[in-house]
């Protein structure tokens, strides 16, 4: 079967669990920014958790189905509609041949994941179907969906309508969030006052919030005086171009921190002062502009405990939908 794109939405891309092993040549992992919601949507329709689905940002697409299908939407609160009638979020439902699936306005979060039983079957590139638009790679011709695209769908396994994600396994979507980070990388470039500003201020997400990075407004971070090392550049925030971890927070010009997400540029010359824990990247992914954000510092042991809790939550999700 194929799905025809009648309206592409604001920025809809094919994403799966991502690609590993090419960041060293500048090809980032890509994949769903909110991996938990991707897994939920896929498990609801009987897909492997990391299968390719559609990531729909702020304003969803309108899609026509040429055959019966089982679908589910998880993540941001963007209510799916079949031929104009509301369908539940976080629950699998059937669409019939000839149906048109659209979305209502977004009321919370930023990214909804539409999974279809069988998965979106675009060709794998470097081991993943995820779209990496900067490199024109993966997805549909390496770009976001456009009107008239036809998305092939794979062969579904056993799945049923009416499967639901229990309430306690759905993320809380809020305009006030805490994001846990590990300080480090080049945080020694900050004074104590600079660190206090970073961890003490409430940061506001700007409209510059896409698959590459999320930029926040707030105070200016005070830096330690120095003689610039050869090759770094004159600005106090410059470093000799270095690799950027996914989730690292860089502060060009010591203002407006940027969290790099899964389509990150792989390296560059701005000091990074902290890294978001891998599981909390889902929280960042569901932040819409103006979301008030506090960065909470944890140490390695705490970070590993957070990671274990995230894995446990995923296990419970898989059990609930198994």
């Amino acid at each position: 079967m194929t799905i025809q794109v009648r309206k592409p939405g604001l920025s809809t891309t094919v994403q799966d669990s991502g690609r590993t092993g090419y960041y060293d040549v500048g090809i980032p992992p890509s994949g769903a920014l909110d991996q938990y919601s991707l897994r939920a949507a896929n498990l609801l329709v009987g897909n492997p958790a990391g299968a390719a689905a559609l990531e729909c940002v702020y304003l969803g697409p309108e899609l026509a189905f040429d055959a019966d299908a089982l679908v589910a939407v998880a993540g941001a609160s963007m209510v799916p509609r079949v031929n104009g009638e509301d369908r539940p979020l976080w629950e699998s439902f059937a669409v019939r041949a000839g149906d048109v699936l659209g979305f209502g306005y977004i009321s919370a979060g930023a990214r909804a994941y539409l999974a279809v039983a069988g998965g979106v079957d675009v060709p794998e590139m470097l081991g993943s179907r995820s779209t990496y638009a900067l490199g024109a790679l993966g997805g549909v011709d390496g770009r976001q969906l456009a009107e008239g695209d036809r998305l092939p769908v794979g062969t579904p396994s056993a799945g049923a309508a009416g499967r639901r994600v229990p309430e306690d396994l759905r993320p809380v979507l809020s305009k006030d969030v805490e994001v846990r980070v590990m300080m480090g990388l080049y945080d020694h470039r900050l004074t104590d006052a600079g660190r206090a500003t970073f961890l003490g201020d409430t940061w506001t997400l700007t409209p510059v919030a896409d698959r590459i990075g999320f930029r926040y407004k707030g105070g200016e971070l005070e830096t330690v005086d120095r003689e610039p090392p050869f090759g770094a550049g004159q600005d106090p925030s410059n470093i000799v171009d270095a690799p950027y971890p996914i989730g690292s927070i860089q502060v060009p010009g010591s203002v407006e921190p940027i969290i790099l997400h899964r389509d990150a540029v792989s390296g560059g010359g701005y000091m990074m002062v902290a890294t978001v824990l891998s599981g909390d990247l889902d929280v960042v992914a569901q932040s819409a502009p103006n979301t008030r954000t506090r960065f909470v510092a944890v140490d390695l042991d705490e970070a590993l405990a957070v990671r274990a809790a995230y894995r446990d939550r995923n296990r419970r999700l898989a059990e609930a939908l198994g």
């Binding site: 980070v181 590990m182 480090g184 990388l185 090392p229 050869f230 090759g231 770094a232 000799v240 270095a242 690799p243 971890p245 996914i246 989730g247 690292s248 990074m272 890294t275 978001v276 824990l277 891998s278 390695l300 970070a303 590993l304 957070v306 990671r307």
Partner: peptide
């Protein structure tokens, strides 16, 4: 050596650029 969250380990061999 510096931890980059729970999945990255960052290593700076020198602050200055050189061959």
């Amino acid at each position: 050596y510096s931890w980059g969250g729970d999945e990255f380990l960052f290593v700076e061999l020198a602050e200055e650029m050189s061959l």
